[in-house]
Design a binder for these strands. Structure first.
Lengths: 169, 169
DNA sequence: CCGACTGCTTGCAATTCGCAAGCAGTTGTC
DNA sequence: GACAACTGCTTGCGAATTGCAAGCAGTCGG
């Protein structure tokens, strides 16, 4: 996990940050799943191993993609927060989700969020980012109306119920 | 390189396609560098090893991201072409490049293309994709005026000349 | 006081990576 | 027609990474 800095190309440098099979999934679970604790993240859809999760979290904190603080409600709990750097990945997630939805064998349950994000366009992405800033950085108001994540979650629940919850979370 | 299909989530499935350190760089060199032969791709900015390149090309062909044909001008040359699936990664590249340019220590030489792509917006991306279709799929006309890739390349040349070519290609 | 939960850590085997060298066939040049 | 340069790979091999299972010290709620 040493920083190689193979070249100064933006695509390459981005890949050196999250060009592995797990980092982006962790961020996905934090952004879209609202997960902020180690054990929550451990219960990912894909089943990440605890040593890999610990390693990636450490790495992401070092890179400035996450911050780690004590959870005031529990002396042993660590609270992970997004930073502006990772919040601004929302448009990347949106494009990636749209591409995956079009070309790969996604399940309906797990792609409904990507569909809504795609259809909402940049305006929705901005609303969502604003919410994440309020939640993770304590900056600004989350904006009026129901939260974007709650809407995405509700849509997922509807589809999952209709499909008999063949795929969880 | 076995297909695990850990979950039907579009982000996860996308990562299973190019969630490694090299696949996306190969595609970048084909899309933005116009490279189509093995030995061209071997001379990447980051220095990919020949066995890794061979493995990734094979994998990308199997997944439908590339096609491989004989180059009529040389009996030994293989010609790699983008498919519609990989051409539609252009918006992903654009968002990823924009994010990397903002948050990572990119060099000016290698990020000028990302800057132009970002400023051009979806309209430019569409023009570029149309060109790639004409070039790689033989479908449709490339559209009037100078090619997007030539414009990006020219911008790179200007910056590289001004900077005394401290970083190559 | 006890069982469940907290964020990890440790071993260990299996896979993957990355470097260097090499190889059979093809092409252009003199 | 000899020869060097180039074609897309392949092979070995040591090093790094991954993934699984188990465990651990401290904490919390009942």
């Amino acid at each position: 996990m040493l920083e190689t800095r193979r070249s100064g190309c933006p695509i390459n440098l981005s890949l050196e940050v999250f060009g592995d099979k797990w980092s982006l999934l962790i961020l996905r679970d934090m952004v879209f799943g609202g997960k902020r604790h180690f054990r929550e993240l451990l219960r990912s859809e894909e089943g990440i191993a605890s040593n890999i999760l610990a390693d990636r979290l450490k790495h992401l904190v070092e890179l400035g993609m996450l911050t780690k603080t004590d959870d005031p409600t529990h002396k042993q709990k660590a609270l992970y927060s997004l930073t502006e750097m990772s919040i601004e990945l929302v448009p990347v997630f949106a494009q990636l989700g749209a591409w995956g939805r079009k070309w790969l064998p996604v399940t309906e349950n797990l792609s409904i969020r990507a569909e809504l994000l795609e259809k909402g366009g940049p305006a929705l992405w901005e609303r969502f980012m604003k919410e994440l800033r309020a939640e993770h950085l304590g900056k600004g108001r989350p904006g009026p109306g129901p939260s974007v994540r709650a809407e995405l979650q509700a849509a997922y629940e509807r589809v999952a119920a209709r499909n008999g919850r063949r795929a969880s979370q």
